[in-house]
């Protein structure tokens, strides 16, 4: 196992900058999730680490060794593709053994490693099947098995769960996290799904427009997002951004509600749904018309229009009896607000 270090990495395709100067250290044994909207360059970044794309500038080091100009086969990494990319003309066994045989590992050793991986991934009964005869979840496990047997310096995952159905995705998420703990392996995992990122990562890297917006633990990023992009990308329902005025050291919300707050240069505040408490009309600092109430069992997810073009998402206790069209108030504690400047940066740093 080894850590990965990226320094000033850039990549352009035909003059189009896709990765614009990414520096990132993935510690040995860390589960690092790169997350971002589609087109943010996250898959390209992974392919640069893999060696499937050549960096335009910058360096990549794996375990302290500069691999920037090395071909993929000399980097000692294993990759699980979004499409699984299993060799369709080979049995599950041969799929998993291909890398070992390429490295001319003795056949007895190949058999042992394949058997070990098959046991770990519950593939023992399927070793002689072709990929076409497997379910989506089984193919996925074969793809992971193919990576495991090679005992790589690090694992790379390119949206490995996106072709699975929802319940299988949740199960596999748990299994992958368990696998990470069992192997203690360095893993770099790319996804556009913020739930996957939040649940599995030791560290999340939020990528947007080929740049790193913020990196840190899921808790750091959720509780102290560095800018409005990260704030709105992580968390469901999305964080509401409320434009505010500052008068006499007080924050003035749309509709005239006031909160005392110490920040200078404040232009907007972010409000997580769980911090917005539904009250009777006039009972909070915001008020508006209830436009949707979704009963989710444990909570009631509601949307309140407090001004033209401004809708606040809130989570209410499920027993609350409110119907769309009603006027309601929203109570907020100033300490729960995320302060942002006009350019979207967090103010309290």
């Amino acid at each position: 196992m080894a850590g990965i270090e990226l320094r000033g990495l850039t990549k352009s395709f035909a003059g189009q900058d896709v990765i614009r100067g990414v520096s990132l250290t993935v510690a040995q044994g860390e589960f690092c999730v790169i997350v971002g909207p589609s087109g943010c360059g996250k898959s390209t970044l992974l392919r640069l680490i893999a060696g499937l794309e050549e960096a335009t500038s910058g360096t990549i080091a794996i375990g302290g060794r500069d691999v920037t100009r090395l071909d993929p086969w000399d980097r000692g990494l294993a990759m699980v593709f979004q499409s699984y990319a299993l060799y369709p003309h080979m049995s599950v066994r041969d799929n998993m053994a291909f890398g070992l045989r390429t490295a001319r590992v003795a056949e007895a050793e190949v058999a042992r490693k394949v058997a070990d991986a098959a046991r770990m991934l519950r593939l023992e009964g399927l070793l002689d099947r072709r990929p076409a005869a497997l379910s989506g979840g089984q193919r996925q496990r074969v793809a992971i098995g193919r990576a495991i047997v090679r005992d790589p310096a690090a694992f790379l995952f390119d949206e490995p769960l996106s072709n699975l159905d929802a319940s299988l995705r949740a199960d596999t998420r748990v299994e992958l996290a368990a696998l990470h703990r069992a192997l203690g392996a360095t893993m770099v995992y790319v996804t556009h799904d913020q739930v996957e990122a939040m649940t599995m990562a030791d560290r999340i890297v939020v990528l947007d427009g080929g740049r790193v917006r913020q990196k840190g633990s899921p808790r750091d990023l959720y509780e102290r997002p560095a800018d409005t992009f990260v704030a709105q990308f992580l968390g469901s329902p999305r964080m509401t951004l409320i434009p505010v005025d500052v008068q006499d050291g007080q924050v003035v919300l749309p509709g005239g509600g006031r909160l005392s707050a110490p920040w200078a240069g404040l232009a907007q505040v972010g409000l997580r749904a769980e911090h917005a408490r539904i009250t009777a009309p006039g009972g909070g600092v915001l008020s508006g018309e209830l436009i949707a109430a979704e009963y989710l069992g444990a909570t009631l997810s509601v949307l309140v229009r407090v001004a033209d073009g401004l809708t606040v998402a809130a989570l209410a206790p499920p027993h609350l009896r409110i119907t769309p069209g009603e006027r309601v108030g929203i109570a907020i504690a100033a300490a729960d607000l995320h302060p942002f400047a006009a350019d979207g940066r967090r103010i309290d740093g």
């Binding site: 499937l52 993929p72 086969w73 593709f81 299993l86 890398g99 193919r146």
Partner: peptide, 14 residues
Amino acid sequence: PVELEEASRMDGAR
């Protein structure tokens, strides 16, 4: 699918 070739490159195949 080009991924098959990429997978084999990741698997060490020249």
